[in-house]
Nucleic acid binder design. Structure first.
Lengths: 211, 211
DNA sequence: ATTTTACTAGACGATCGGTCTATTATGTTC
DNA sequence: GAACATAATAGACCGATCGTCTAGTAAAAT
């Protein structure tokens, strides 16, 4: 009995083969990204996530087994989106490596301003909630920072090769310093509803790099 | 009729004149400081704050008119506690001004380690929640950062006078950069449950200061 | 028509901040 | 000591909201 014959013996509506390409499912994740970026995990109720896109509450647990699983997908979605954004700047050969960092900051700053300082960094938001988040989120968030840090580190090494950064510089530690400060700057920008903390952070960070 | 006579016409137990010196009230604020430092405002339920010190719920609204008012007092209590801690380090004439900053960082690091990376900075926690916090908290938190920034700024100016910092340095912006980065470092230390981000932040910050 | 899956409607218990009434404890004046 | 008034405690209760779940309808195949 071949697979076609097997298929023909099955009666009733066949299960959907690809569970990941539903409009509704994708819309839920997109809505989740937006709300978690604004308010973090706990303050983002499932009702609000659903209401934002007009999906009834009963549907949620058809697409996701729990808020915890949903959050995991939201985080991964954001991380991959953000990694692409980083690449477009940090791998831009039209700019020197130092300028690329400034290019990323300008892009992120524009996004934050566009949303009137209501949206921050999803990973930064959840970082601060981590003690009351589901188990496993901690490692997830840590790995994302490691990934981002590595991308900046590569960029800084390229700056070293182009004599824009001292060869004595520890690029890994400088990259960690960047993200630590950046998350702090985003948080402060949201508090003061001003881009000034972002700009000052970039200026001070670049000025402090060993040349 | 003089005031004494008026007093004598009132019968019964007179109202307490000083509402701020009750043990229970102080204990509630202390409990609030601890919980808000660990979990922020929203995740700190009144029940948990009460349970921590064995005070019944009925007492809460005797001492405070609302969670919002309570939170305001908790914030102010933390801010004054923290300001004192800053002074003990930043005004310590036995160290040079740059060393004083390191002295503060060491102290704070020890505190975070002592609580196993479960407690962060109360102001930093609430900073990130500010969009969903009661009105007025935003200004309250902003003012606290301005105060802290000013204390670091004064310290940096003293460093300039002692030729430890370039006279070209903008001490106000460097002070803002410090707190922005510090809050980011505390958040990261809690995520990774390690003091390394705190140490790296201090090292990079000091290394980046214009000499 | 029947079978199977995709999707939805709304109930459910737990918990939240907040309010309420009742009660006990304490201190002052007559 | 009796009468009085406030301090403080006790915990039931409310409406709202949380994440989750069960029972059902709609749709697509045989």
């Amino acid at each position: 009995m071949n697979s076609l014959a097997q298929k023909n013996t099955r009666r009733g509506r066949p299960p959907k083969v690809n569970h990941d390409n539903h409009d509704t499912r994708a819309a839920l994740i997109r809505s989740g990204v937006e709300l978690l970026t604004e308010h973090g995990f706990f303050a983002s109720g499932i009702d609000k996530i659903l209401k934002k896109i007009g999906v009834p509450k009963g549907s949620f647990y058809h697409y996701f087994s729990s808020k915890e699983d949903f959050g995991r997908e939201v985080i991964e979605n954001y991380a991959s989106y953000f990694a692409k954004k980083l690449d477009t700047h940090l791998l831009n050969v039209e700019l020197d490596p130092i300028q690329r960092i400034g290019s990323f900051v300008e892009d992120a700053k524009a996004g934050i301003q566009k949303h009137h300082y209501k949206r921050g960094c999803l990973v930064g938001n959840l970082e601060q909630e981590v003690d009351v988040l589901p188990d496993g989120y901690r490692q997830l968030l840590t790995d994302i920072f490691i990934d981002w840090q590595h991308r900046i580190e590569v960029c800084l090494r390229e700056a070293q090769q182009q004599q824009l950064l001292s060869t004595n510089a520890n690029c890994a530690l400088l990259a960690e310093f960047f993200w630590v400060g950046w998350e702090g700057a985003v948080s402060r920008a949201r508090l003061t509803q001003s881009a000034q903390p972002l700009e000052n952070f970039l200026n001070q960070y670049l000025a402090g790099l060993p040349r």
